[in-house]
Design a protein around this nucleic acid. Structure first.
Length: 382
DNA sequence: ACGATTTGACCTGA
DNA sequence: TCAGGTCAAATCGT
């Protein structure tokens, strides 16, 4: 078990160290990437170690601590759109040598590791990795809305009775860190438009539509409901596909923005288009410089929320810290991130751990909690 | 002021 | 008729 803790501490140390040396690394994407790669590797090993049987002999306090961290890492690895997208972007930007495109020398390591975490094989491209993770799960048998399999993430497809709009049902675990009241971020921004008590269900069903429905006529909707027999599992039903990320359907002239926001928004659009949308806009990817990409304020938060439209606030909920608590299955809500300093890595970490702290970074959360509870761990870091 | 959320009312299909 | 889905006014948060 000591080994596990050492691994976690090592990973945390590396992340902290990376954060510290970041100002010198923004113009060295390759070093940045390899550092990130190393960190992921260490956490991955830690996670494997945690999940082994040794967990049983841990004192409760340490167990929950480790589970929290492990879950955060797991979320990160599972939803690794950030590093993989970052790789894609870097390749697009030709910051990486061409051979990484075909061989995946740097990015490939990440991808493969993620695939390994998901228990699948093969490489993916162009899709949000959380979706990818779900896609490789074998389709589960359709179950009643209040019961059935407890698969961590199952996916079913069916034709709905209303107009043949395809429905895709997924089961996703509630985050074990941060706000567990909402399902993990799925890469899109949603606006809640209704909630309904469902017959024979303990929990209400929440209805969401794409935030950009009006702007881009995006028809995507989703319903979120907790399972009766396992409140830690959300059943998420998606209806309709997102069209808001398609340049052909998006307005060519975006809505006017305050002058001071235009530049930031422009960069944000390019970054998010390249970094998260299932069908990234190549033009955006090729016009965004690495330094821009690295220094966009709240980069990670915007990416996690897929906040492309020019709304006056970041319609992002990272899983917690929201000012509104709402119903039992509340979805995206408004969080604002008005920091004046750029902390790209911290923000990336925020995304990766998906824990939803709105003011301080998740990494800080982890580090501080570790310092609090494991004073000796703090010593080990130094 | 503006956008998001809440929630009761209304609509629709089985 | 009823349950599920959506609307829209009221409310809230920034």
């Amino acid at each position: 078990m000591d080994e596990t803790i050492d691994l976690i501490l090592q990973g945390c140390q590396m992340a902290k160290s990376l954060e510290g040396s970041l100002p010198n690394m923004t113009n060295q994407p390759e070093s940045l990437i390899s550092s990130c790669d190393e960190i992921i590797r260490v956490f991955s090993r830690a996670k494997e170690s945690v999940s082994k049987a040794q967990l049983a002999v841990l004192p409760e306090s340490h167990k929950s601590q480790l589970l929290g961290i492990s879950s955060g890492v797991q979320e990160w690895l599972r939803d690794s759109s950030i590093p993989t997208r970052a790789m894609d972007l870097l390749r697009e930007q030709q910051f990486l040598p061409d051979d990484t495109k075909s061989k995946g020398v740097i990015g490939g390591g990440l991808d493969e590791m993620v695939v390994g975490q998901m228990g699948g094989g093969g490489r993916f491209c162009g899709r949000h990795s959380l979706e990818r993770a779900r896609e490789i799960e074998p389709p589960a048998v359709e179950a009643a809305s209040s019961g059935g399999s407890r698969a961590s993430a199952s996916q079913r497809q069916r034709k709905s009775r209303d107009g043949g709009v395809e429905r895709r049902v997924e089961r996703v675990p509630a985050p074990q860190m941060g706000n567990t009241e909402i399902p993990p971020e799925d890469g899109y921004t949603w606006r809640k438009y209704g909630q309904k008590d469902i017959l024979n269900s303990r929990f209400p069903r929440s209805y969401f539509r794409c935030t950009h429905q009006k702007l881009y006529q995006c028809p995507a909707k989703k319903q979120v409901q907790r399972l009766d027999d396992d409140p830690n599992i959300f059943e998420v039903t998606y209806r309709g596909d997102h069209t808001c990320h398609l340049s052909s359907t998006a307005p060519s002239v975006p809505p006017p923005l305050p002058v001071e926001r235009r530049e930031a928004r422009s960069m944000m659009q390019q970054a998010t288009a390249a970094a998260i949308h299932p069908l990234p806009n190549p033009a955006a990817a090729t016009t965004l410089s690495m330094s821009q990409w690295l220094t966009i304020r709240d980069f990670g938060l915007a990416v996690a929320g897929g906040g492309v439209a020019g709304s006056t606030s970041s319609t992002v909920n990272m899983g917690g810290g929201s000012s509104t608590s709402g119903g039992a299955a509340a979805g995206p809500s408004t969080s604002r991130y008005g920091r004046d300093v750029d902390y790209p890595v911290a923000d990336m970490a925020d995304v990766m751990f998906n824990s939803g702290s709105s003011s301080s970074t998740s990494m800080d959360l982890i580090f501080s909690s570790m310092d609090d509870k494991w004073p000796d761990s703090a010593d080990k870091k130094n």
